[in-house]
């Protein structure tokens, strides 16, 4: 390998765009491999392609946790011509998964709650799932999610198509918003912080 400096700003930008292309190619390969599914009852109107083919997940990660609740984060990019809506997700590590948003609670605290209607990403736009913002919530992790491991999530879009993506588990001490749900209150991943 050459360990030499690529010093000029211009080449660096070029390199980045190549990187983006490479990432896109990788995602498309993944899509082909997983075989996105489309159901008969697809809710989206005139869409040319399933949402899962327009969507890419970038920088996906999950907060490490021994058990209980934790969040999945990353950026969803929509390279298609119509908006797409993420409506849910499934994973083998948690029987229950919800889409959440973060809102201001009492006493200046932040609170999470289920996001009604899912997460809509406009055509050509991207949407960040982040601590303190919209995110995917794994509600009942049974086995420890260890830093550096991968968690596969299957994202479900409103047209019924699905996209499988591996999220990397990271130790993270933020994302401690209180959760207000039907089952009472709790928060993410406290037992992973020690």
């Amino acid at each position: 390998m050459s360990s030499f400096t690529l010093a000029l700003p211009a080449p660096r930008r070029a390199r980045r765009s190549r990187l983006t292309v490479a990432l896109a190619a990788a995602t498309i390969t993944l899509l082909a491999a997983c075989g996105p599914t489309t159901t008969e009852e697809a809710a989206e109107p005139v869409s040319a392609a399933p949402a899962s083919e327009s969507a890419q997940i970038l920088d996906g990660w999950v907060k490490a946790v021994d058990d209980g609740m934790t969040g999945a984060f990353g950026t969803i990019e929509n390279s298609g011509d119509v908006e797409i809506t993420l409506v849910g997700a499934t994973t083998s590590v948690s029987p229950m998964v919800e889409l959440h948003e973060t809102v201001s609670g009492s006493n200046d605290s932040s609170m999470m709650q289920q996001k009604e209607g899912g997460v809509t990403i406009a055509a050509g736009a991207s949407h960040e799932l982040a601590p303190g913002a919209d995110h995917i919530m794994l509600m009942s992790v049974a086995e420890p999610l260890q830093p550096g491991a991968e968690v596969v999530l299957v994202l479900e879009f409103s047209d019924g198509s699905t996209l499988e993506h591996a999220f990397i588990v990271k130790e993270f001490t933020g994302a401690n918003e209180e959760y207000v749900g039907d089952g009472g209150m709790g928060d993410m991943g406290d037992d992973a912080d020690g």
Binding site: M1, S2, S3, T5, L6, A7, L8, P9, R12, R15
Partner: peptide, 14 residues
């Protein structure tokens, strides 16, 4: 100088 115009911060080693 590295990079001629001294863009030290953006220099990258693969």
């Amino acid at each position: 100088r590295v990079g001629g115009s001294v863009d030290v911060g953006s220099s990258i080693v693969p």
